[in-house]
Simulated assay, not measured.
Amino acid sequence: MEANAETAESSESEADRQVSETDRTPVTFGWDGVRAGFLTCAPIAIGVGGYGVAFGVLANQAGLSVAEAALMSATVLAGASQIVAIELWADPIPVATIVLTVFAINLRYSLMGAALQPWFQSLSWKKVYGSLFFMADENWALTLRDLQSGNGRGAFLLGSGIAMWVFWVASTTVGALAGGAVGDPTEYGIDFMLALVFVALAAELWEGRSSVVPWLVALAVAVVASALVPGQWYILLGGLAAAVVEVIRYDG
Rank of each mutant, 00 (worst) to 15 (best):
G239P: 01
V169L: 06
A70S: 14
G183P: 06
N106V: 05
L64N: 09
G180F: 01
V128F: 03
A225P: 09
A15H: 10
S10W: 13
L116W: 03
A163C: 09
L132M: 10
L107A: 08
R249A: 09
A218Q: 09
R145T: 15
G130S: 06
D184R: 03
I190E: 00
G63I: 03
V99P: 06
V224I: 15
N60W: 05
A8P: 04
A181P: 00
S110P: 00
A8K: 04
A227Y: 11
P43L: 04
E187Y: 09
E187M: 14
A136T: 15
G30C: 00
Y188E: 00
S226Y: 10
D184G: 09
E87L: 12
A36F: 07
D32T: 14
P43I: 05
I105Q: 08
F120C: 08
I83M: 15
T143V: 08
I44F: 15
V53D: 01
V166A: 12
R249V: 01
G63L: 03
V223L: 14
I83W: 12
G154K: 07
D137E: 10
E68I: 09
A104G: 00
D251W: 10
A74D: 01
L116P: 00
A115E: 09
D91M: 06
S210M: 12
G30K: 01
S171R: 11
L58I: 14
T97W: 03
L111M: 14
W168T: 10
A114N: 08
G189S: 06
T186N: 13
N106A: 05
M164Q: 06
G37D: 11
I105F: 07
W165V: 02
A3P: 10
R108K: 07
L64A: 08
L58H: 05
E2F: 12
A54N: 05
L237T: 07
P43H: 11
W233I: 11
G56I: 07
W215S: 14
L219H: 03
S124K: 08
A59G: 02
S20M: 08
R153L: 05
F55Q: 08
E204T: 10
I235L: 13
V57W: 04
F198K: 12
F134I: 01
A136L: 14
F55P: 08
E2A: 13
S160T: 09
S11G: 00
V102H: 01
D191H: 02
T28A: 11
I235F: 15
S13C: 10
T101V: 07
V102A: 13
P92D: 01
A78R: 08
A170Q: 10
L132H: 01
E246R: 13
V76F: 02
L216F: 15
A176K: 10
A220N: 12
P118M: 04
